[in-house]
């Protein structure tokens, strides 16, 4: 159920787009209104989420570290594993975002060998597939700028040429198309095959994977198998980004509308799902704080002014009584007139 529900949801979205365009001819809705709405929801949603996090106080200094903290000068500190200044935080964050450094340390527990001993082993496949997936996604995203920018910046044809380096078929096979399919498939299969991972996986984990798989498949179909009118596609996309939306007269092909609709859903879903980690990673206190609690006092922002009653004040108030009861006091009563009596 946890798997089938999101799968059917994505299939339903595909059917919805096909019926909407082929059956009901709602090209304006699927080509203009929904993409615009999705984009606005995406931008607004991301800003709302980020400002929401920024409004939450961080009561403690909680960087998660795995290296020696900076302390005495003769103890060698590791500024990357346990950053004590902003440069260290930026360095660690950059490596995390670009290369998933913490995932590289991923381990897996398993029963191994003849005696079925519980062993912990390094598990790099998730890291490799995750990295491949995220980088190809970025690559494909940038490659798509050819539909959104005019004149097309120099790096877009360069990326395309590099991607089609193998010169297989016409149009040239893009390697990233294969990589993203393989990587997403791995991520789905991993969730299904490993019992522990399957146990903790929710529909919200499968849905984005199926959605992205649907986007990739519809894109690949368009490029290699069910051709669409790319000139019409660019006319539509350029009309959207120049704020003069217009659906081109000729038919574009329903695969394109499926592709566009799934992307719109992805964009609109983004800020409200796990995918928001795109922004969230920068705001996670375990990663964006410097481990400098010995240098800088971290003041809990929700501390309110506490009413003190220090011992000095206590003694001042009860000194006479204390002396009278024979209790020791720090400060003798300073009423010389009284003692003289």
């Amino acid at each position: 159920m946890k798997v089938l529900l999101p799968l059917f949801a994505v299939i339903a979205l595909v059917v919805l787009a096909v019926v909407g365009v082929k059956g009901a001819h709602l090209n304006g809705l699927f080509g203009i209104v929904i993409p615009y709405a999705a984009f606005v929801i995406f931008l607004g949603g991301m800003i709302a989420r980020v400002t929401g996090w920024a409004r939450s106080p961080v009561p403690f200094k909680i960087p998660s570290t795995c290296g020696q903290q900076k302390s005495l000068p003769w103890i060698k500190a590791d500024n990357l594993e346990s950053p004590h200044n902003t440069a260290g935080v930026i360095g660690r964050m950059a490596l995390e975002v670009l290369f998933f450094r913490s995932l590289f340390r991923n381990t897996q527990a398993d029963y191994r060998g003849g005696d079925q001993k519980l062993t912990y082993g390094s598990e790099k496949f998730l890291w490799a597939a995750g990295l491949a997936f995220h980088w190809t996604f970025l690559y494909i995203f940038l490659r798509h700028l050819r539909f959104f920018l005019e004149p097309i910046p120099f790096f877009v044809p360069f990326l395309e040429g590099l991607d089609g380096l193998l010169q297989i078929g016409v149009p040239r096979l893009f390697m990233t198309d294969l990589v993203i399919l393989a990587a997403v498939t791995f991520l789905v299969v991993r969730r299904l095959m490993l019992p522990q991972v399957r146990y903790i996986s929710l529909p919200a984990d499968y849905f984005p994977l199926f959605l992205i798989l649907g986007i990739a498949i519809s894109g690949i179909l368009m490029r290699y198998f069910i051709k669409v009118d790319l000139v019409g596609v660019k006319a539509l996309t350029m009309s959207l980004v120049t704020l003069s939306p217009r659906v081109p007269e000729g038919p574009i092909g329903s695969v394109f509308y499926v592709h566009l609709f799934l992307i719109s859903v992805l964009f609109a879903y983004f800020p409200f799902s796990k995918l928001v980690h795109m922004g969230g990673v920068f705001l996670s206190p375990t990663r964006n704080q410097a481990n400098n609690s010995r240098e800088v006092r971290h003041v809990n922002p929700w501390n309110y002014p506490v009413k003190h009653f220090t011992y000095e004040e206590y003694e001042d108030e009860f000194r006479e009584v204390m002396i009278g009861a024979g209790l020791p006091v720090d400060k003798q009563a300073d009423t010389p007139a009284e003692t003289a009596e």
């Binding site: 920018l149 704020l243 003069s244």
Partner: peptide
């Protein structure tokens, strides 16, 4: 973030 995702909207300077 906003500048990056809205590049297509301001890149052409509003020309169709």
């Amino acid at each position: 973030f906003a500048a990056f995702f809205t590049v297509p909207f301001w890149y052409g300077g509003g020309k169709t």
